[in-house]
């Protein structure tokens, strides 16, 4: 959670660049999606620790409340959901790809939006779920479904495995409803989801993607 004086209200789905500069002048930066809905100067980031990363270990282990970092944003005007959008929305998140989608869910909740949302959230196993209590509580007009790829809780109806066309048919929207589809996750996950959605007849212009690259951390 960061307090950013003068923060302009962000759009759901936008990200920030966090820059760290060492005493010797060496500096490095990473992009993190905003997880929160717009809320004054407060900005919540969800950061996944990358063991040999340069930035995330610092943010998680070294930084203390009250410390300052250099933060640039909000950034991005394409992978965003605006509350005035009325069409149905399909959110497809893989791993920590849930973060910008959560900002969309929370923004919709904060403004009392009526656009129907469906969320397909792929994780390896139950322990990997982010925001589990909040998503369990749910909201009217939001359907959430978990897709486990390695281990599922007992009695989970879906067999474990990666995202399939059937998942998108069952948990998504028919293409003729013209939903907006937001897909975020690791590159392979996003490629697969976007290919499947296109094959199901979704307009490529209505499939918005955000990938995590190799330089995370």
């Amino acid at each position: 959670m960061f307090d950013v004086p003068g923060w302009p209200a962000h759009l759901a789905g936008q990200h920030v660049d966090v820059r760290l500069t060492a005493e010797d002048g060496y500096s490095t930066q990473r992009s993190y999606s905003v997880a929160s809905a717009p809320d004054g100067d407060r900005v919540e980031l969800t950061i996944q620790r990358v063991a040999d990363g340069e930035v995330s270990p610092y943010l998680m282990d070294v930084m203390e409340p009250g410390d300052r970092v250099e933060l640039r944003g909000p950034i991005g005007g394409w992978f965003v959901w605006r509350p005035e959008q009325a069409e149905p929305v399909l959110l497809v998140g893989g791993g920590s790809g849930i973060v910008p989608l959560m900002s969309m869910v929370r923004t919709r909740g904060a403004v009392g939006g009526h656009a129907p949302f469906r969320l397909l959230y792929s994780v390896r196993e139950p322990d990997d779920r982010l925001y589990a209590p909040e998503l369990l509580r749910g909201e009217p007009g939001l359907d959430t479904e978990y897709l486990y790829t390695r281990a599922a809780p007992p009695e989970h109806p879906r067999p474990v495995g990666r995202l399939t066309a059937e998942d998108l048919v069952r948990g998504g929207w028919p293409a003729d409803r013209r939903p907006m589809c937001y897909v975020c996750g690791p590159t392979g996950f996003v490629e697969n989801a976007a290919t499947l959605l296109t094959a199901l007849g979704h307009d490529p212009d209505r499939i918005r993607t955000e990938r995590f690259g190799p330089s995370g951390g």
Partner: peptide, 22 residues
């Protein structure tokens, strides 16, 4: 697979342009 997508250009380009280019 060693790529990210153009969303990542947003920050660096915001140093140069006043509007979002992504």
């Amino acid at each position: 697979t060693a790529y990210e997508d153009g969303n990542t250009l947003g920050g660096p380009l915001s140093e140069i342009f006043a509007v979002d280019l992504t």
